[in-house]
Amino acid sequence: MNNITVNAVLAGASRGWEEYRQSFSNSQDLFNYFGTSGVFLVVAFLLQDSTVEGAEVSVGAMIIASAIGFLVAMGGIITVAQILATEREDGTLLRAKALPKGMVGYFVGKAVHVLLVTATNTAIVLFPPFLLIDGFAFGTQGDWFTFAWVLLLGITATVPIGAVLGSLIKSPRSTMGLLMIPVMGLTMISGIFFQFSAVHEWAQWIAQVFPLYWVGLGMRSVFLPDAMLAVEIGESWRHLETAGVLGLWTVVGLVVAPILLRRAAQRESGSRMAEAREKAMQSTV
């Protein structure tokens, strides 16, 4: 990397930090941080005394562990797609394009921003359960290691998916509608709220194609006692398969996403933005 690129990467990193900092003075963002996590925590707390069918594990503890998988996937897919669709339309991307190495700065900024937001979400969900929910703990030293690589691979597997969707979707206002339903559907069959063994076998197969299930499984392996294995597929945490599936998504994503992003960025111009603005104005009136 020459110093021009290094300079742009550093500028991008400070951009990510600045946008992260700004998120704390925005009520919508604060709600996203604490609202979603709050729902999980309340549900988990209420269900802490019920046990998972077929295993001596608190449903509350299971939900918290799976919730981290959910937050990572949501952050990677929905948040990234939403930001990208919005910033393509409002001209943020175009401004980056007008700067020397501006695109590098822009995408580094986004990556840093998403990383910080996901870390914050995870921390907010994680801390209260350690104190409040029985059977929720880091078992061994190895759990820390598993936690770190599942989290990291979870992010790298989902962020490119979000980037691809965000560069394909035409209007930011349709992002939520288009993505929420499939993502919620996937959440239902991925063992986030209900134990995975209760899901139909054919739905289990679908769920296992996508990263969401695997990040959830990885997190359960970290926070839940091995008693939980009684209801997991193959009675195993399947770390190898987890790394394989998430790794595959990461590799494919890192190949495909830059191509589509470059295409999306190339299409941006002042006149396209003016068109988008016209449309947005019309739809808000």
Partner: peptide
Amino acid sequence: RARLGIVLQSWRDHGR
């Protein structure tokens, strides 16, 4: 690119 300046019509980008 660094030698060019482009004045874009802003709309609502970077509002924060």
